[in-house]
Design a protein around this nucleic acid. Sequence first.
DNA 1: GACGCAACTGCAATCATTTGCAACTTATTC
DNA 2: GAATAAGTTGCAAATGATTGCAGTTGCGTC
Lengths: 150, 150
Amino acid sequence: MSKHSGALKELRAKGCRLTPQRLLILEAIAEGSAHMGVDEVFRRARESYPYLDVATVYRTLRLFRELGVVTEVGIADRLHFELTDPAARHHHMVCKVCGSAFDLSPYYLEQFRETLSREFGFEPDLGNFTVTGTCVRCGSRKELRGPIGN
Amino acid sequence: MSKHSGALKELRAKGCRLTPQRLLILEAIAEGSAHMGVDEVFRRARESYPYLDVATVYRTLRLFRELGVVTEVGIADRLHFELTDPAARHHHMVCKVCGSAFDLSPYYLEQFRETLSREFGFEPDLGNFTVTGTCVRCGSRKELRGPIGN
DNA sequence: GACGCAACTGCAATCATTTGCAACTTATTC
DNA sequence: GAATAAGTTGCAAATGATTGCAGTTGCGTC
């Protein structure tokens, strides 16, 4: 409950309602593994309420993201979410070869953010920031196969 | 033709074939506006060859992106592409409020890239890098409406 | 604790993107 | 220039995600 109270306050502040569906989805994310796919959230939440529809899950997750309650991580072109933990805020590096997601401390982005803000007045949405690329393991494996290898 | 010759060489090097469809799609992007949506590429290319299928456009664009021939820009959760110009390489800032895309010089990301590479061995795929956020105009408009405004 | 309204949900339809497969083409080899 | 092997295409079906709408429900007000 303690983890949710903040989220509920956010809902109220925006004039949103507290529905059983939203509570279920919130719980599913809070109790599930890190970086949950939409269908995993859906399956978990539906266990307690079989009438739940995927559309509601998508809508709710988007709402939660806008409220800052959950963080979106784009893994392999699909939506994944995790509970936002203000005490351990972090970004993500996703390997486009193996699909693994690594946490990245905001420390490494602070300077970048400041530059964009100062130079262009552009305020980056780093709350849901993800860099794709190649992780150490996949990078070294590729080298072994030569420059054209796939 | 001069702009394409590089792309054609890339195709050959990877053992890919040169088909009329691919040429059409390449031309459509080269002649079209910046940051073209998939359907715009499709419509343009189909003008010269009505049998062209969307699936082919998607497949070809993905191939071109992997070859570095085109650059992907994610605007409002949809795929957009532009011809990669090695002489004027740049990244993108996309405003999540108004959907505008702004060019960003690689200069601002060089340090970030180096840090990720050195600290984590993670090689970011900055060729197709996009930051979302709020641009100057939308940022200031929001302030006028107060903190809860939408 | 009933009323009213805007927010929310479920359903079905729709859009954006990807994939499996059989038929067809490109480019290579002889 | 015919035979061949591998890459490509179009079509149709599947998947992931969004949206319109009519009915339902949370919640502030009396």
